[in-house]
Write a protein that binds this DNA or RNA. Structure first.
Lengths: 145, 145
DNA sequence: ATGACATTGATAATCAATATCATTATGTAG
DNA sequence: CTACATAATGATATTGATTATCAATGTCAT
């Protein structure tokens, strides 16, 4: 039972949605797939301009929407006001550990925390659908300076 | 060792900053203090208009900035894109349990979770400074419908 | 009452994200 | 290959939230 590759997932989505090909979208997709980092719209735009000069922000936003719809990508509204995009497909649920100095993002999970969250919600009569946990601090390297 | 009242905290701040009085700011302050709920800018604006007709959004924003500076208030950027303002003074750290249907906000704390967060961060070499935990789901009432 | 200066509201400006729209590109059917 | 339907693009306008600007007004110590 092998998992489909991200490229395939998007190809399926494109077929379902009757999307046509375009160098711009392919460029953006390629950049997104090559980067496991959490990219901002601007970073994506800067990188895409190299492969497809003249590309506009609208196309970046449009393509990101497609990526999210297809299940490959997830929008992350960060505390600093910047919106970042992370890989979703094949990534199980996780939270984020974020360095407030260098901006490093680390994906973390703790089943203990997850369990306690459930218990906490139940105690208040809530039925949980999702949660968002972001831990901010200084990473090992940034503590030295 | 009694704790100062919120009114006093703001008065001290105003003195420090050489703020002058104004009916508008006093109206906003009064509304904020009377409401323990998590208010949006618009709710505050609507309420303030009754006490000070002709008041502008700029004044709401300016006053909220003062309230935050003074330590009475905290800005909360929620997942739904709406910015809310909550009471900070005298409120120890807490997280939020949010109903995605009716918008109810419940303040919660769980020391177990806090401990595990610390441990998790330590394991990754991070020194935590703050965190943000939001639990989304349906509250008891909204589950019935 | 006066002068220094904080405050206000209207308005313009900014910033991220969306919508509009004429032009261009893609792909399928002949 | 051509034609046609339609998706995609980029420029530009628009929106919504927030901030900056500025002339007019309010506050307050003297």
């Amino acid at each position: 039972m092998e998992r489909k590759k991200e490229e395939e997932v998007f190809a399926d989505y494109a077929r379902r949605k009757n999307l046509k090909h375009s160098v711009q979208r392919e460029a953006i997709l390629k950049i997104f797939l090559k980067n496991e980092r959490h990219l901002t719209v601007d970073e994506l735009y800067q990188a895409a301009k190299k492969a497809a000069p003249g590309i506009g922000f609208a196309t970046i936003y449009r393509t990101l929407k497609h990526l999210c719809d297809s299940g490959l990508c997830r929008e992350l509204k960060c505390e600093d006001g910047v919106t970042r995009y992370e890989h979703l497909y094949g990534h199980s649920h996780h939270d984020h550990l974020i360095c407030t100095k260098c901006g490093k993002f680390v994906e973390v999970v703790d089943f203990g925390i997850e369990k306690l969250q459930e218990a906490l919600a139940r105690k208040e009569g809530f039925m949980l659908t999702k949660h968002k946990l972001e831990l901010y601090g200084l990473c090992k390297d940034c503590q030295k300076e």
